[in-house]
Simulated scan of single mutants.
Amino acid sequence: MAKPNLTPLEDALDHLLSEAPVVAQIETVALADSLGRVLAENHYVPADVPPADNSAVDGYALRKQDLHGDRPIPVSARIPAGEAPKPLEPGTAARIFTGSEIPEGADSVVMQERIEVTESGILVQAEVDEGQNIRRRGQDLTRGDLALAKGTQVRPNEMGLLASMGVARVAVLARLKVAILSTGDELVDPGLPLGPGQIYNSNRFTLMGLLTEAGCEVVLCETLRDKREATRETLQRAAEAADLVITSGGVSVGEEDHVRAVLEESGSLSLWKMAIKPGKPVAFGAIGGTPVLGLPGNPGSVLVT
């Protein structure tokens, strides 16, 4: 059970999601640039995939009823991928390749490893079942079906699926713009020398990675010094530039923790202290209508929260 004044985790998550910023702007990008983006519309299958029955292997298309013991079957056609085949002549087989369309009249494909080629034709050296090694029309996608729903984040497999439907450009939601503010006079950017009492700012890069991975656009990264007015000015400026502001540090009860105080004075504070450890002093509020999520300064707490 949560201690008094500590918000249970599930309640905090519900509150955060209810107040989360919503992006309504839509933009169109090339399919090659869609990785990580969020679809802004439903995608329905425009045509069956595959568009016709085709061979799943390199081999020979034939009718099972034409197999008679050790009698060779003559080869009457060769069907490369990308060509429309003529109907299969009765009593014959057709050389066929992976992805090639099955000729009318054939009901099976025997892989070439199970075939002996002779001067008189082919000898099948395996049991044959009707339909074997045939990928049926519409087996992957059926025309009119919902392939991808609005709100789906595009991963490599979604890119391939869209490509298989002939989609070249994709309507996606604009990226959520996020500002990252790190607090503390002790923070130094990597690459610069450390002075007495200073540490490198690792939280900025942790948050940049997490946000980029989530498909967000980081529009501002700054370090806040431990001054109340400077904190207020930078928070207000960040709120004007972003859909969401995330801070690290400055949300606990220390004399130099100004983020929570500024939220209370210049905006609103609707959540403070969650029943988790590490990460208890999480704060959430808004400035000028822009949500502000205040995380603790400890790097482990930043990852957790």
Rank of each mutant, 00 (worst) to 15 (best):
I287G: 08
P90W: 10
A163G: 07
E256T: 08
I276T: 06
R155C: 08
S34C: 13
P103Q: 07
P8G: 09
R225W: 08
Q132W: 02
K227V: 10
E19W: 07
A52L: 09
D33P: 05
A52Q: 15
L187S: 01
A81S: 14
R136T: 06
R71D: 13
A230L: 09
A241E: 09
I96N: 00
A275S: 12
T223D: 13
A47I: 07
R137E: 12
F205M: 06
K177H: 07
L220S: 06
G91S: 06
I180K: 00
V262Q: 12
E41Y: 03
T152C: 00
S100H: 05
L224F: 05
S248P: 01
D129F: 06
T212H: 10
S252C: 07
G36N: 07
T206N: 03
V245M: 02
S76T: 15
L224T: 00
R228N: 02
V172P: 00
A171E: 01
S108V: 12
V245L: 03
G215W: 05
S182Y: 01
A94I: 10
G59A: 09
Q125P: 02
S182A: 11
G289A: 14
Y200H: 12
G279M: 02
A261E: 14
V170R: 00
Q25E: 14
D185A: 11
E240I: 01
L181C: 05
L62A: 03
A2Y: 04
Q125C: 13
G279R: 01
A230G: 05
D53K: 05
K277V: 09
S266E: 13
Y44R: 15
V117G: 00
S252H: 09
